[in-house]
Design a protein around this nucleic acid. Structure first.
Ligand SMILES: [Mn+2]
Ligand SMILES: [Mn+2]
Ligand SMILES: [Zn+2]
Ligand SMILES: [Zn+2]
Lengths: 147, 147
DNA sequence: TTCTTTTTGCAACTAAGTTGCAAATAATAT
DNA sequence: ATATTATTTGCAACTTAGTTGCAAAAAGAA
């Protein structure tokens, strides 16, 4: 897991959960706090391992992540390496502030492209869009692996 | 699997394999032919199941796909549902003709966005690109699932 | 507190893909 | 056409990420 951005108190975590009508259980509080302290998306495995060190079962962590995701409190990223990653929604449930993600195919590092927007351009005016876009993932070679 | 686009003869398949210095085995020929006849990316599972009906072992099919991918004869798509998909490179090994892909999160359908280009735009001039992009994946709700 | 509903831990299971190794096959040399 | 050598295959066992059923525990409401 990565370095703490800042610590979220138990009370703050509880407030976030209550805001989405979720029960405040120890596991969910721990998940919210862990995700909050992360500076990049966290894999389910990392989180399950970290929190099993505090006595939580991995199935509980997986279930918590799914529940928080369904409540739009966390974003679930499927980046193509068959390992799920999660990040706390910037706004705790509103579903705003989506951004594309970049994954390096060499080192596996994942970056939030918060300062970028993506544009899909039809090459001719007769092709129609495939649908409404909800997630954009870009893969390639990161600057560290290229240089 | 999807309907045949056109049939590729054994000799044509062999020529493609030889062009990349790969041995012409029955399994690899069958994989090339199957991928050629597909109109959309094919999952490893579909292909392994189809070809196991002809006596090939699934491990052989998985290995063939990996080898053909490493030779740039086929493109491997990781679309986020932990199931790999493959398509024949349009130009049999040159690595050109890349295009973004769209996956519907509702019905799972995958579309090649051959007629689209993608543009990553920095929101300010001081943010730098994350690296060199090699694959773009867009997920969302397809028109059929939206209407 | 008591009651009711939701959540948890456990262990067993699933799905997709990988691996070691002896036997079979492809390409090459004779 | 046959022998030689390197590569590929089939098999079965394994791995990894995640899921599930169910009884016990915990949360929130009364
Ligand atoms: Mn992000
Ligand atoms: Mn395609
Ligand atoms: Zn990298
Ligand atoms: Zn759809």
């Amino acid at each position: 897991m990565n370095a703490a951005a800042q610590t979220l108190s138990v009370e703050e975590a509880k407030a976030i959960l209550k805001g989405s009508d979720l029960r405040c259980t120890a596991a969910r509080i721990a998940v919210v706090q862990s995700l909050h302290s992360a500076t990049a998306p966290v894999t389910s495995i990392e989180l399950a391992e970290l929190l099993s060190g505090y006595g939580f079962d991995k199935s509980t962590i997986y279930r918590s992540l799914t529940e928080l995701n369904e409540a739009d409190l966390v974003v679930r990223l499927d980046l193509g390496d068959s390992i799920r990653r999660f990040e706390l929604a910037a706004n705790y449930g509103s579903g705003l502030s989506e951004h594309p993600h970049f994954m390096c195919v060499d080192c596996g590092e994942v970056t939030c492209l918060s300062d970028f927007t993506f544009e899909l351009k039809a090459s001719s005016r007769k092709v129609q869009a495939p649908g409404t876009i909800s997630e954009v993932l870009v893969r390639g070679h990161c600057t560290a692996c290229t240089s």
